[in-house]
Design a binder for these strands. Structure first.
Lengths: 225, 225
DNA sequence: ACCTAGAGTTTGAGTCGTCAAACTCATGCG
DNA sequence: CGCATGAGTTTGACGACTCAAACTCTAGGT
């Protein structure tokens, strides 16, 4: 409402960095990097957020959103993820491009349009990447899942979420048949090479680094072994 | 592409004012008024457009878009009108609110999303107000129509376009059953009062000022008299 | 021809978001 | 234990956009 587009971007970035960070605090440098901005710029913006009671921060420390700031961040995330869902489900765009598109659209969606969109999409709980869509009241239902990198050889699992939003990662996964909801099996693990070999159900075996695999979340399924 | 959101708004405003104006030139003051900005601000922005070869202008004269500027304005108008169509046809919003919503969304639509939207909507030629949607190549097919105010008593006509985008006008028309495509008949004209009485097919008689009626475009139909 | 009302322009200042570069703090290595 | 390193902060400047207010031009009426 009161927040400029820039402020919205800072709130979203802080929220996401905070989620990643161990201490629940977002280092200013990480926030700056996430936004493609210099550290100095981020520092002065954080001051502004603090003045608006959207964040807390002490000199040389990390940033932490207040309840008010968190609420605002969730609202933006809701817009972002509903837009992504719309772009994939209704317009048929590829999931590798929708993140960037949603990045621009999320700021132009009014509450009225948002609700109409939500209704049109059947009030979805997850976006095309498996990320939970915060509800209008701010509730977020994180799905239970583990990194694919923690599976053992022979394990079966269902892909439930992809954390990486980079286009090339998503194109690789789609091309490999690794989409949200797909079941797969770990064919082999080569720890020396840092690689695991995965077979999606009905697809051919693909190799991926355990680093990449750690950003793909799965739910194990007991299956034919 | 290169144009900021602000520049896009100026281009659109100049295009529309120019269309209205007799001389095919947009007075700076009208442009400023259309954008809710002071005349001084508009003047300096016009200079910028001229520098970018998007408009021509001489001191104390009117503004005129160059072919390049016109092309850009049509692109924005295309986005605006496709978004309006989407909001009404797909999301089911009322036509009295979509103008303002589209005003914000039009700047966030990439060519890719625009084309997907166009395809999803079946490549419509007109938006919910009957305004022509410029095609991707910049062609605009204006529909032939006359102001409803020029009809005579007893005349029948089909409503093809509503020029007024104000919410209250559009709510009045919708409530009266006067939507695009509806047929209607002029019951009476009272020139002294500046009022005409209209009966939409299957509706009850409503009065409206000839001023308001002049902003509603119709195509006469010969009908039972 | 003048002269004034209205339209348009200029000027000076302010806000927002940004950067580069100088500066400050906290830490852990040697 | 001191100090170099890297993270964070401050400062000064800038570009984009805006306003208010002073200024200038144009056109119409007498």
């Amino acid at each position: 409402m009161l927040a400029s587009e820039t402020v919205e971007n800072y709130l979203k970035a802080i929220y996401l960095v905070q989620r990643e960070a161990a201490a629940g605090e977002a280092p200013v440098g990480k926030v700056a990097a996430a936004l493609g901005v210099t550290a100095g710029t981020a520092t002065s913006m954080v001051k502004k957020l603090v003045a608006a009671k959207l964040a807390r921060h002490e000199r040389f420390g990390g940033v932490r959103l207040t309840p008010k700031g968190t609420r605002a961040a969730l609202d933006i995330l809701r817009r972002h993820r509903l837009v992504e869902t719309f772009l994939v489900d209704t317009l048929g765009l590829d999931w590798s491009v929708v993140h960037d598109e949603a990045e621009r659209l999320e700021h132009a969606i009014s509450p009225m349009v948002l609700d109409a969109l939500d209704r049109h999409l059947g009030r979805p709980a997850f976006d095309p990447h498996g990320d939970p869509i915060p509800r209008a009241d701010g509730a977020v239902q994180e799905s239970e899942a583990m990194p694919m990198s923690e599976l053992g050889a022979g394990d079966g699992a269902r892909l439930v979420r992809v954390l990486d939003q980079r286009g090339d990662s998503l194109r690789f996964l789609r091309a490999s048949g690794l989409k949200v909801g797909a079941t797969l099996r770990v064919v082999a693990i080569e720890p020396g090479a840092g690689v695991m070999r995965i077979r999606p159900d009905g697809g051919t075996v693909v190799s991926m680094s355990t680093t990449a695999a750690s950003r793909v979340l799965v739910r194990p399924v007991r299956g034919r072994d």
